[in-house]
């Protein structure tokens, strides 16, 4: 087995928990839980939909915290963590919207409802964070990009309540289920399954974030090595033959 450069014992354990937990969620959510009184088996979509929602907003919030930390300490790691977390937040957000639409069609009779607060506000927020990912692709100096990204990540997080409130007022009625955890309507096993699914979602989020972070870190190393190599060659030409161990301060013009 070839070693996996982005895994460690921590992530391996997280990965094992994710896979075992996923099996449990499939068993519980797919077979053992009772169908809902109103929507029948369709309620089973909840066990992937709700974790996706939690992952989306966790990604955005973790991204903002890491960005704040970056601006405070100027830690390259925090910058990459922010990138990783928000990227996963956006992916989960897209999945969230898609599963919402799939769920909406048979239960509400429509894929999309402009009257629904969570649908519309999630869409706007995901689009907002797509902008963040666009900034991450900017062909500028690492530090400039990191600073700009951090500012956007924090601004976008400030937007979460603003978007939520504006959309809530805008569409006075909502089709969406009220938060179903608190109203005591759910059966015990259903609630338990949902909790398990959320926890597994968060574990998967941690696994993905760590892996993505390490890939980003490697990408940055490749950029640096490329630059350091170029500098080393130049020096070798200049006859001294300095080792390629020069660690030049980042800066690579290429977006990739």
């Amino acid at each position: 087995m070839t070693p996996n450069p982005t895994s460690s014992s921590t992530t391996r354990n997280l990965g094992i928990v994710t896979i075992l937990g996923l099996g449990l969620v499939v068993l519980l959510g797919g077979f053992l839980t009772e169908p809902d009184d109103l929507m029948g088996d369709l309620v089973r979509i909840m066990y992937v939909h709700v974790p996706a929602a939690i992952m989306t907003y966790t990604g955005f919030v973790v991204g903002a915290i890491a960005s704040g930390f970056y601006l405070w300490k100027r830690s390259e790691f925090a910058d990459l963590v922010a990138h990783a977390a928000i990227e996963i937040g956006v992916i989960s957000g897209v999945l969230l919207i898609l599963t919402g639409a799939i769920w909406g069609e048979p239960t509400w009779g429509t894929y999309w409802s402009w009257q629904d607060v969570r649908l519309v506000s999630t869409l706007v927020l995901v689009l907002l964070y797509v902008g963040y990912l666009a900034i991450r692709q900017l062909p500028v100096d690492h530090h400039v990009r990191a600073r700009r990204s951090a500012v956007i990540a924090i601004a976008s997080t400030i937007m979460i309540p603003i978007v939520r409130y504006s959309v809530t007022w805008w569409s006075n009625r909502t089709l969406h289920q009220e938060a179903s955890l608190t109203d005591g309507k759910l059966e015990d096993l259903t609630l338990f399954t949902l909790m398990v699914a959320i926890v597994i979602g968060l574990v998967a989020f941690a696994w993905l974030t760590i892996h993505r972070f390490r890939v980003l870190w490697l990408e940055q190393q490749v950029d640096n090595v490329g630059l350091a190599g170029a500098i080393a060659e130049r020096r070798a030409e200049a006859s001294t033959g300095v080792e390629a161990a020069v660690t030049a301060p980042s800066a690579n013009g290429d977006p990739s």
């Binding site: 706007v124 927020l125 689009l127 907002l128 797509v130 902008g131 666009a134 900034i135 900017l138 062909p139 500028v140 700009r148 500012v151 956007i152 601004a155 976008s156 937007m159 603003i162 978007v163 504006s166 959309v167 007022w169 805008w170």
Partner: peptide, 25 residues
């Protein structure tokens, strides 16, 4: 955020329009 970047013309709208959505509403 877009100063000194090529493709600024396309970047600004996708960054700014979602932010301005609440203003539009």
């Amino acid at each position: 955020l877009t100063i000194g970047v090529r493709g600024q013309e396309t970047l600004l709208p996708i960054l700014l329009l979602p932010v301005l959505a609440p203003v539009l509403i």
